[in-house]
């Protein structure tokens, strides 16, 4: 049955694009700051809920709501950096401490979402026509997700390789102290990194919020997928993390050909395990610098 095979591959690409949206911001922040910002998933979730409140509850113009949501996501991300990560960096906390702090931030924002919006599943209704591709189905929003993740990837590549800010970010990523001696302020670069990374989380929150249902734990499961994709590709490289995300999406969706669909998550964790144990630098294999 070729159309089922095609549908599984298509589903894999769609899931891969969703994970890539999460993974690109996560690995951008990791590559510059050298710690795992798990609360990235919480930024995504609270952005999706903000869009729900603005567009559905308050009923303001949909595009204006999206714009406000993206600004909101950037603010949340930067506040996390200023309020929590910056004081920890100041006292030279290890990356393990920052990792635990980021998980604490994630549960904090999750619990806030749960308290404010409640545990019930929410949907953002949109017009979403379905297309037929050789017998397989894909929705307009899914096409947009794939297109946006491709555009964002190109934009990120341009930012990192061609702009002054991108070069400064790479300098800080490479060696913070040397960057400082040539006049780059690392704290300013970290702030910019969180703005751009959280903007990506906001875009992911908007698109995933429209494409799927909203539930308080959505950020946790998505950041784990995004992060797994990043480990498969390469934690320190945005193109690597995007590649890894697509591999993860494909393996998960083609895997349910053999396994019950409930095991989708388990497939991701097993892949994560295999890569952490045998190839922690990921497929693109850049050597991870000791922070």
């Amino acid at each position: 049955m070729p159309s089922i095979a095609l549908q599984l591959i298509l589903n894999g690409l769609i899931a891969g694009a969703v994970y890539a949206l999460v993974a690109s911001g996560f690995s951008l922040i990791y590559s510059v700051t050298k710690f795992m910002h798990f609360a990235h998933g919480a930024v995504l979730a609270i952005a999706a809920y903000a869009l729900f409140t603005l567009a559905v509850s308050a009923g303001i113009n949909f595009y204006a709501a999206i714009l406000l949501t993206l600004v909101f996501a950037c603010i949340v991300g930067v506040l996390m950096d200023w309020a929590v990560y910056r004081p920890l960096r100041k006292r030279k906390a290890s990356s393990a401490v920052l990792l635990i702090a980021s998980i604490a931030l994630m549960t904090l924002v999750n619990a806030i979402v749960l308290a404010v919006w409640g545990a019930d599943v929410k949907t953002i209704p949109t017009i979403n026509p379905v297309f037929d591709v050789l017998g397989a189905r894909i929705t307009l929003v899914q096409v947009i997700i794939i297109a946006v993740s491709a555009i964002l990837l190109l934009a990120l590549w341009f930012l990192m390789k061609r702009t002054k800010l991108g070069k400064a970010m790479r300098a800080v990523a490479d060696n913070k102290d040397v960057a400082q001696t040539v006049g780059i302020n690392p704290e300013r670069i970290y702030t910019w990194t969180f703005i751009i990374g959280s903007l990506l989380a906001g875009v992911a929150g908007v698109l995933i919020g429209i494409e799927q249902n909203l539930y308080p734990q959505m950020g946790v499961s998505l950041v784990i997928k995004g992060f797994t994709g990043a480990v498969i590709g390469s934690l320190v490289s945005v193109p690597g993390s995007v590649l890894g995300s697509f591999i993860l999406g494909l393996v998960e969706n083609i895997g349910i050909w053999w396994l019950p669909s409930g095991y989708k998550d388990a497939i991701a964790f097993v892949l994560l395990f295999i890569f952490l144990l045998f190839r922690p630098t990921g497929l693109l294999g850049v050597k991870v610098r000791e922070a």
Binding site: V84, P87, L88, R91, A93, V97, I100, A101, A104, L105, T107, L108, N110, A111, I112, L114, A115
Partner: peptide, 13 residues
């Protein structure tokens, strides 16, 4: 959960 997370963050900092 909010209280536990806040306590952990404050202690870490």
């Amino acid at each position: 959960e909010i209280i536990f997370a806040l306590i952990l963050l404050l202690i870490l900092i």
